[in-house]
Simulated assay, not measured.
Amino acid sequence: MKRTSVKICGLQSVEVLKSIVHLPIDYVGFVFARSKRQVSGAKAAELIPILKEWQTAAAPLSVGVFVNPTLLELSHILAEAPLDIIQLHGAETPDFCREVKQNLGVKVFKALSVKEDGSIHDAHPLAGYEGAIDGLLLDTYDPLYGGGSGKTFAWERAQPYKEWAEEHQVEFLAAGGLHADNVEELIALISPDGVDVSSGVETDGVKDISKITAFVERVKGI
């Protein structure tokens, strides 16, 4: 049975991170784009070392979430906070993604924003992204922030993107409105390589340890 990776996004608290070091989490996301979960480079630099305290077989990789950054902005952030992966949620071109990979020495995840009916916002083509990205993330479109809407999209429409990812040996992740009570349904339907959650493990806008634990347990079957 395929092992599904877990990404918990929008972490801002040292205390929360320290409370989940026993859970088999694969990626921890820090949001640098405009958001109520936004962190600074200095804050991320405070949080990233906690990942080395993880008590499972492997420590999570750190992911920085950006929308239409410049290469200079990314290099400044990386100088302050040594992220493993740059996740791009804007209109970043294949050439830009390739430049980030080659010049900054990080992996690149490209997010596509999916409308609730399954169509891609701005009809973002995948042609050209071959070799430019390491992960493809489908997230529900939000007109204000691009992603992180807390809403699901038509999951059955994900198949062509999953097939593209498989063909090009790119990790395929699904996000958007996931929580402990629906993530098993998504996994059964589209079998992504990984799932990404943020608001679905929060209570009143704050990361909830019990919800994070329940989500991870459902995905990992523990």
Rank of each mutant, 00 (worst) to 15 (best):
Q102F: 06
K43S: 07
E99R: 14
G135I: 03
L11M: 15
H124P: 00
R98M: 10
A175E: 03
L104V: 03
R34S: 13
L126P: 02
E202A: 07
V6E: 06
C97I: 08
V183N: 13
K7C: 03
A81L: 09
S35L: 10
K36N: 12
A44R: 01
P82A: 03
K52Q: 13
T152Q: 15
V28T: 06
K162E: 04
L11N: 10
G105L: 08
A58Q: 14
V65M: 05
S35F: 10
P160L: 09
L178K: 06
I86W: 04
H76F: 11
V183I: 12
D193R: 09
T4H: 13
E116A: 14
A57R: 11
F153L: 11
V28E: 00
L136G: 02
R157Y: 04
E185F: 12
T203R: 15
I120A: 08
G135S: 09
D181H: 13
P49V: 07
A59Y: 01
G128M: 11
T140G: 03
R34V: 13
K151A: 11
L178D: 02
W155A: 08
K101L: 07
V16Q: 02
K207D: 09
E73T: 14
E156Y: 06
L51F: 12
H121M: 10
D139K: 08
Y141T: 01
S199M: 08
G128V: 05
G221L: 10
A111W: 02
S35D: 05
G148W: 08
Q159G: 04
L47V: 12
A91L: 13
N182E: 06
D196F: 07
H124L: 14
Q87R: 03
L173Q: 09
Q55E: 15
L186Y: 04
A165H: 02
F32C: 12
A57P: 00
G194H: 09
K107T: 02
F215M: 02
K211M: 06
D204T: 03
D122C: 11
D193G: 15
I120H: 05
L178R: 01
F109Q: 00
E116N: 03
K107S: 12
G150S: 09
D134G: 13
E171K: 14
D181S: 14
L138D: 00
V63C: 05
T213G: 00
H179A: 11
K110H: 09
L11Y: 00
D134R: 11
P69K: 06
G150V: 10
H121R: 13
L61Y: 12
L136M: 04
A79D: 14
E99H: 09
P94S: 10
S35Q: 07
I133Q: 01
L138M: 04
G29R: 07
F109K: 00
A158Y: 00
C9E: 01
S198G: 05
A91G: 08
K151E: 06
T203A: 10
P94N: 06
S40E: 05
L138K: 00
V216K: 01
A123Y: 10
K151H: 12
E130Q: 15
